[in-house]
Design a protein around this nucleic acid. Structure first.
Lengths: 337, 337
DNA sequence: CTGAAAGCGCTAACAC
DNA sequence: GTGTTAGCGCTTTCAG
């Protein structure tokens, strides 16, 4: 089946058919002012009849020199946390009339840089970035372009432009205090971002700071060179417990790993939290059906995504916005600590 | 911080700086032929020096009348199954030099139609759709445009253009035969797509066909008006078991629901599969850490996404492709049936 | 191997 | 309320 060129109807033809000028037709379609109701009707009828599909490429080109495309980059499109962010961001942006162009940076600044360069050539109205760090080239590029940019996920107090994020450091710090308050003293850490430290590393730092304030430190750590997953948590827990059978609590990089760890413990008939306590971060839907409620930090990825979209759009429109927005988190005590 | 207009460097300036014509610079940048190595060096040096960012909007506009944008629509961006599809599709498309523009149709033909109309105005090179059905308007629009379209997820034997999918009907049929072979006779079904039947409904049909061949039918069904989730499975199982305590097996719409159901059963101290057997569809990463291996149909969302991207690109390039590609599925017997 | 001219489909600016 | 005139930054001819 060869590709043919159909759908060639353009504004001129619509205008001609409606007996008006291109300009008037254009105004009607953009809902600008400057046409009578009767004209409107006539133009819209022809649009319908001819099956006219506007050409946004031409529109973006011929006008403001910036499209209604918004580039959104996340670590992985298959991440459950970022999937929710994408969903709410995309929904909010669509309502504002923007289209989402996606990218997966895989926690690599280089991959992100390549993507940014690429996406900028589409003259997007704005960008949403989620990587904890950007290469210098990326930062320079964005600054020079003067394009609205919302950095999300991490809270960046001196953002390129805008920042909407969670305070990961505080999350870790708070969880450490909670765990200490419950009397645990031989605490381990299991993560999976050895190759490309993400925000889990920042939570870990906050956690360690709280430990050190009590003259403690992690009794053991296991940071895999992997991507966070249920199985990584399972395996990491097996490894750390085989090395250090004394642990009475493990803080995990996130809930997926914590749940994996939980099931490892269960598979060894360890009682949670009596034999070993478990804490995660992030909250996952599956937690609602598990036998025990997981102690974790609850975050609203949906709220974050929406807030980011709103801030970015406000910035694009030149409306006043806070440069830094903190998205709330809440330590949710469960039955596993 | 007001938005300024920087990065105004365009091809002309690069060309002038390099002492060549726009055309030559253009050729170098597109890696077309027709320039000397020395010219190439000079142009690239100026590109670097001036921080030139190509304008793809102008390029798409000025040339083939079709961009390198590919529109990809999935039910939800936060779905774990479709997240994986998106990830592999996006990765494959990026390698081919395409950009992904996303949409979430939420299992509504209307939402999809709106999105398709919108996306077509970007003159995409192709589209990937995942909805089981499209509105007539959508189908007409796509046919008239003659744009390459890959319909994924469901296997459509008479696709608009291309189809890459799983044979959901067969999946259900096969699972029914397996369950029957294990001696189960009082089988229930739990789903969550009452409002907008998706492909789970097709698996259910295949399952029923196999039951009917044995003069049986579902002993009980519970199809929630909800979105599939772990909790929906938990709750649906509670509902169906309260209504019919005789069931010896439940076939779930998908793994998320099956896992939710599994934990409901566990919470009631039901033995699986002795008291009640459980089967799902789709395979999820968490299955690797559960106490019992779930009996399910394993599908490769990654393979599907990649295959779809490859077929679509081949079609765009005018290379020969199979119109219909079946992505394999495999019944994986576990410990829950 | 290189360049000049034309034009893609739309919108901004200005006239009427 | 409506039309006219340019021109956005590229690429596609077509000449050299």
């Amino acid at each position: 089946m060869a590709r043919e060129n159909k759908a060639k109807v353009n504004l001129s033809e619509v205008a001609k058919a409606a007996g008006v000028s291109k300009m008037t037709a254009s105004r009607v379609l953009r809902n600008a002012s400057g046409f009578s109701e009767e004209t409107r009707q006539r133009v819209l009828r022809e649009v319908e009849r001819l099956g006219y599909v506007p050409n946004r490429i031409a529109a973006a080109f011929g006008s403001e020199q910036t499209s209604t495309i918004i580039g959104v980059s996340v670590p992985f499109l298959s991440s459950s946390l970022f999937g929710a962010v994408l969903d709410s961001t995309n929904g909010a942006l669509a309502k504002f009339g923007y289209q989402t162009m996606i990218g997966a940076h895989e926690n690599s600044s280089e991959t992100e840089e390549t993507w940014v360069k690429n996406i900028l050539s589409w003259r997007p109205a704005g960008l949403i970035l989620s990587a904890p760090r950007h290469s210098k080239a990326t930062r320079d590029l964005l600054r020079n372009h003067g394009i609205p940019v919302a950095e999300i996920w991490n809270l960046n107090t001196s953002p390129i432009d805008l920042s909407v994020g969670f305070n990961h450091y505080d999350c870790g710090h708070e969880m450490a205090l909670y765990i200490l308050s419950k009397g645990y003293r031989r605490i381990g850490y299991v993560g999976a971002d050895a190759l490309a430290p993400g925000l889990g590393a920042l939570r870990r730092k906050g956690f360690i700071a709280a430990l050190e304030a009590s003259n403690m430190t992690f009794a053991s750590e296991e940071i895999l060179s992997d991507r966070s997953s249920f199985y990584a948590g399972f395996y990491g827990t097996e490894t750390i417990l085989n090395r250090n059978r004394n642990l009475d609590c493990i803080y995990f990089q996130d809930d997926a790993m914590a749940i994996g760890g939980y099931f490892y413990c269960k598979s060894k008939d360890l009682r949670v939290p009596q034999d070993i306590a478990i804490a995660g971060w992030g909250s996952m839907e599956i937690a609602s059906v598990l036998p025990q409620r997981l102690t974790t930090t609850v975050v609203s990825t949906q709220a974050l995504g929406k807030a980011a979209a709103q801030s970015l759009v406000a910035r694009i429109r030149g409306e006043p916005v806070d440069d830094v927005v903190i998205s709330g988190t809440r330590l949710a005590p469960g039955a596993t600590v």
